[in-house]
Simulated assay, not measured.
Amino acid sequence: MKKYQVIANQIRERILSGVYPPKTMIPDQKQFAEEFDVSMITVKKALDGLAREGLIYKKSGLGTFVLGKIPLGDAYDSPANAFDGLSAQQGADHVESVPLLFELAFPTPEIAEKLDCKTSEPIYDILRLRKLNDKPFILEHTYMPVRLVPDLTKKILTQSIYQYIHNDLKLVFGGAYRKIHASEPTELDQQYLGAGEHTPMLEVEQVVWLTNGENVEYSTSRNVFDQRSYTVIDVNDF
C-alpha cells in the first residue's frame, strides 16, 4: 500500500469515528506532513482522494473541512472522477475479477480513434466480469495498447490492472473523459449480469490518458441500473 493510501485510511478512520466531527476543520497539510513524516505532496494526494469520496472539502483561504454524511450516498457508489479502480474502492477481498476474453488484436478504426493509435498497432482486447461479494456486479470491456501496458497476463486480470499499471509499470494517469448513460441490455448483460430482456443498464464509457498525454485505455463498464451509481461532489468555492 502506498504511503498516501495509508495516510488516507487513517484520516478516513478519524472522520468516521468522530475524531474529526462534521463541519469542523481538520489539520492542514503541513501538520499532517509532520505527523506522518511525509512530504506535503503525499498528504495532498491523500486528501484529494478523500475529497473525491465526499468526506472532506476545501475552502480557499480557510482550510479543509469535514463534509459529514451525504444523504444520497450508497456503499456501492463510485465517484465519477475516481482513478483507483473497483478493487481499491471496495477492497480487494470483496472483489473477484473473472476474465472472459483476453487476446491480442488490431483495433478497428473506431477503437483506434479512441486510443489515438494506428489500426496496425497491437492492443489488448479484454472482457472481465467483476463480482462483488460473490455476486455479478460489473461487465467491463477494456482496450489497451500493448506498447503502453506490456507483459499483461491473465493472472493480473484476475487482480487489478490499475495496480499493475501504477505499481509495476510506474505509470500515472493524467486524466479521463467519461460518458455515463442508460442503455438497453445486451446478450452479454443477460448472460453474465442476470439482466432481463428489458432491464435498464447503466454504462460508463471512458478514455484514460497518461501524464504524457498518451491514451492508455478505452473501456466500457456496464451494470444493472439499481446496482451502482456514480457521484459528483461539487463545492462552490467563492
Results as ranks from 00 to 15, higher is better:
173 F>L: 02
111 I>R: 09
154 K>Q: 11
232 V>H: 11
181 H>C: 07
67 L>F: 12
179 K>W: 06
33 A>T: 07
186 T>S: 15
64 T>Q: 11
200 P>L: 13
178 R>M: 06
91 G>Q: 05
85 G>I: 03
169 L>H: 00
17 S>K: 11
30 K>E: 14
230 Y>K: 00
223 N>R: 03
36 F>Y: 15
29 Q>M: 14
194 G>K: 13
116 D>I: 04
219 S>M: 02
2 K>V: 13
204 V>I: 14
60 S>H: 08
32 F>V: 13
237 D>E: 15
11 I>G: 04
104 L>K: 15
195 A>W: 10
22 P>V: 10
54 G>R: 04
90 Q>L: 13
79 P>I: 06
3 K>P: 15
85 G>N: 05
98 V>D: 10
22 P>C: 10
149 V>S: 02
149 V>K: 01
5 Q>P: 07
28 D>V: 09
19 V>K: 14
8 A>F: 12
37 D>P: 01
70 I>K: 08
33 A>D: 08
134 D>C: 04
25 M>F: 06
217 E>H: 00
89 Q>L: 15
227 Q>P: 01
127 L>N: 01
85 G>L: 04
91 G>V: 03
132 L>R: 09
24 T>Y: 08
28 D>L: 03
179 K>I: 05
22 P>K: 09
39 S>D: 02
112 A>I: 09
155 K>N: 09
149 V>Q: 02
167 N>L: 01
116 D>H: 06
206 Q>N: 08
223 N>H: 05
194 G>T: 13
156 I>C: 05
21 P>L: 07
34 E>P: 05
71 P>D: 08
53 E>H: 04
106 F>C: 04
214 E>N: 07
22 P>D: 10
26 I>M: 06
8 A>I: 14
226 D>T: 06
171 L>I: 01
24 T>P: 05
60 S>Y: 08
216 V>A: 11
204 V>G: 05
205 E>W: 11
122 P>L: 05
120 S>Y: 02
119 T>C: 08
125 D>F: 01
208 V>F: 03
208 V>N: 11
6 V>I: 15
211 T>H: 08
15 I>V: 15
170 K>M: 02
106 F>R: 14
